Amino acid sequence: MRSSRRTTQKPDFPARTAPRAGSLDGLDATIATCRACPRLVAWREEAARVKRRAFRDWEYWARPVPGFGPADAPLGIVGLAPAAHGGNRTGRIFTGDPSGDALYAALYDLGLASRPTATHRGDRLELYGVRITVPVHCAPPGNRPTTGERDTCRPWLARELQLLRPALRAIVVLGAFAWQALLPVLTDAGWQLPRPRPVFGHGAEVLLAHSGGGRPLHLVGGYHPSQRNMSTRTLTPAMLRDVLRRGAQVGGLPVRLHHGGPGA
């Protein structure tokens, strides 16, 4: 476990620090130092101390997990938060848990990832034109961040979208939590939400104009590839590919289905 015994930081650490990040690399490095939410700090470090039996030989990341993907990505993917024994263990978002297994396999199927599996930071996996991030960067107990934790973490997402904005054309939003967390960030960044506010749903789409005359942004909603959603077939691999394919299309990315059948 890489974490330290330092005390938590003040809750305004993200708000004070995020706007000063001049690049995504700098932002990612700063996110990994955040200790602003005492409950999340305690949980992520306890998970790393106790470990699961299958991962007893791992040195857990046990820090906030930054986004993953190139800085000039036209397509963003926004999820929920790292899993205690997934991203909190591997140090990469959507890596090391069933949700990540489903997501990276779908991205590979569409030609948006260099391979269908992700195991850890440094495994040489590449994403093509895609940046994956989350509104909450620490693993929460029960996969349920509080609204206060979401709001404390919000400046990281806001700055990430600002840095991505020159190339960003579309975002696939995985799950209702991510949808609700993302909308106020987009409003603050100058994108205009229609009235009434767009409602989340699998396959929901909305085009947001930018008040400053910048490029409009396509939002595409999709169910989160959680183990529960996949096992109950609330979300199937084909459904996941469909929303990712749509996001890539409106984002101007070429896609090709080179693995898996349409009903797989």
Rank of each mutant, 00 (worst) to 15 (best):
M1K: 09
S4F: 09
R5H: 11
Q9E: 11
K10P: 11
P11C: 10
P14G: 12
I31C: 03
A32T: 01
T33K: 13
A47T: 12
R49L: 11
V50R: 12
R56V: 05
E59Q: 09
E59G: 02
A62T: 08
P64M: 06
G67W: 00
P70W: 03
G76E: 13
L80V: 07
H85V: 01
N88Q: 00
T95W: 02
G100M: 10
L107K: 06
S114T: 13
R115G: 12
L125E: 02
G129V: 09
P141E: 12
G142M: 11
P145K: 11
R154M: 11
P155L: 15
P155G: 15
L157E: 11
A158E: 15
E160M: 05
Q162L: 05
A170R: 01
A170P: 12
V172M: 02
V172K: 02
A176W: 02
F177R: 15
L183K: 07
D188W: 03
L193Q: 12
A204R: 15
V206N: 15
H210D: 15
H210A: 14
S211D: 15
P216N: 12
S231T: 13
A238L: 03
R241Q: 08
V243D: 01
A248T: 06
P254S: 02
V255C: 05
H258T: 08
